[in-house]
Simulated assay, not measured.
Amino acid sequence: MTLTPEPYAPRRIAPLGVWREAGHSIKAYGIHRDAELAGPILTDAVVASVRAAVRDVLSVHRGDPRGHGLGYCIAHVGDEAVWLLVDWWISGGIVCQRMLSAPLAQPDMFTPVTAPALACVWELAVIAHERDAWVRHMLTEQPDAGAYLQAVLPAGRY
């Protein structure tokens, strides 16, 4: 039996600022399944739990000699769970990732995802932007971390 995918519907995506966590500067993004949601894309409680989870993931990689101390994270309130992708750059053009999830009813209970997964189509919009920003600002003769951190995907429906 094959599942038929649902038609694509844009979701709301918004930058949440640059977070300084565990020796890294991380561009944070939120995604919400309800594109018409009024108000903040994530509640304060979800933002606090996301930041704690990002800090925990990155603390393991603090001081990695291959690291740049730069990256991004995506917190996505989806249909099945709250997904968290923590991504950081190493060795020039390599992005590393840890994926976590929390139940929708307990968005502060993040656990690592062990299933083979990379990202969904909405998260890939952020990842594509971050790839292009990395190439434009860091893979140059004069890398500019400040310009990379300022290059954020604008809030909108993607």
Score class of each variant (00 low, 15 high):
residue 92 G to Q: 03
residue 96 C to S: 13
residue 77 V to D: 07
residue 38 A to N: 10
residue 155 A to R: 13
residue 59 S to N: 14
residue 154 P to C: 14
residue 132 D to E: 14
residue 69 G to A: 11
residue 61 H to I: 01
residue 141 E to C: 02
residue 149 L to G: 05
residue 155 A to V: 11
residue 10 P to V: 14
residue 113 V to I: 15
residue 53 A to M: 00
residue 48 A to F: 09
residue 20 R to C: 00
residue 24 H to W: 09
residue 17 G to M: 08
residue 98 R to W: 01
residue 132 D to N: 13
residue 14 A to Q: 10
residue 129 H to M: 03
residue 131 R to H: 13
residue 135 V to K: 14
residue 68 H to T: 13
residue 62 R to A: 13
residue 49 S to P: 05
residue 84 L to R: 11
residue 51 R to K: 15
residue 36 E to C: 06
residue 54 V to L: 02
residue 79 D to M: 09
residue 10 P to N: 11
residue 144 D to R: 11
residue 109 M to F: 07
residue 19 W to G: 00
residue 97 Q to H: 05
residue 49 S to Y: 09
residue 8 Y to C: 05
residue 60 V to W: 04
residue 123 E to G: 14
residue 70 L to N: 10
residue 32 H to R: 02
residue 94 I to G: 05
residue 54 V to M: 03
residue 85 L to P: 00
residue 59 S to G: 13
residue 28 A to I: 06
residue 80 E to Q: 13
residue 74 I to S: 04
residue 85 L to C: 06
residue 111 T to D: 15
residue 60 V to K: 15
residue 55 R to H: 12
residue 32 H to V: 07
residue 41 I to Q: 01
residue 133 A to F: 04
residue 81 A to C: 07
residue 66 R to Y: 11
residue 80 E to K: 12
residue 116 P to Y: 00
residue 76 H to V: 03
residue 126 V to E: 01
residue 134 W to T: 15
residue 62 R to C: 00
residue 102 A to M: 08
residue 105 A to Y: 00
residue 94 I to R: 11
residue 88 W to Q: 02
residue 139 L to G: 01
residue 90 I to N: 14
residue 9 A to I: 05
residue 127 I to H: 08
residue 78 G to Y: 02
residue 63 G to Q: 05
residue 111 T to C: 11
residue 142 Q to C: 09
residue 30 G to L: 07
residue 137 H to V: 02
residue 129 H to W: 15
residue 141 E to K: 08
residue 79 D to T: 09
residue 44 D to T: 13
residue 28 A to F: 04
residue 147 A to L: 05
residue 16 L to W: 00
residue 96 C to D: 12
residue 128 A to Q: 09
residue 66 R to S: 10
residue 12 R to L: 15
residue 65 P to L: 09
residue 48 A to S: 14
residue 23 G to Q: 04
residue 108 D to Y: 08
residue 79 D to W: 01
residue 123 E to M: 07
residue 71 G to Y: 03
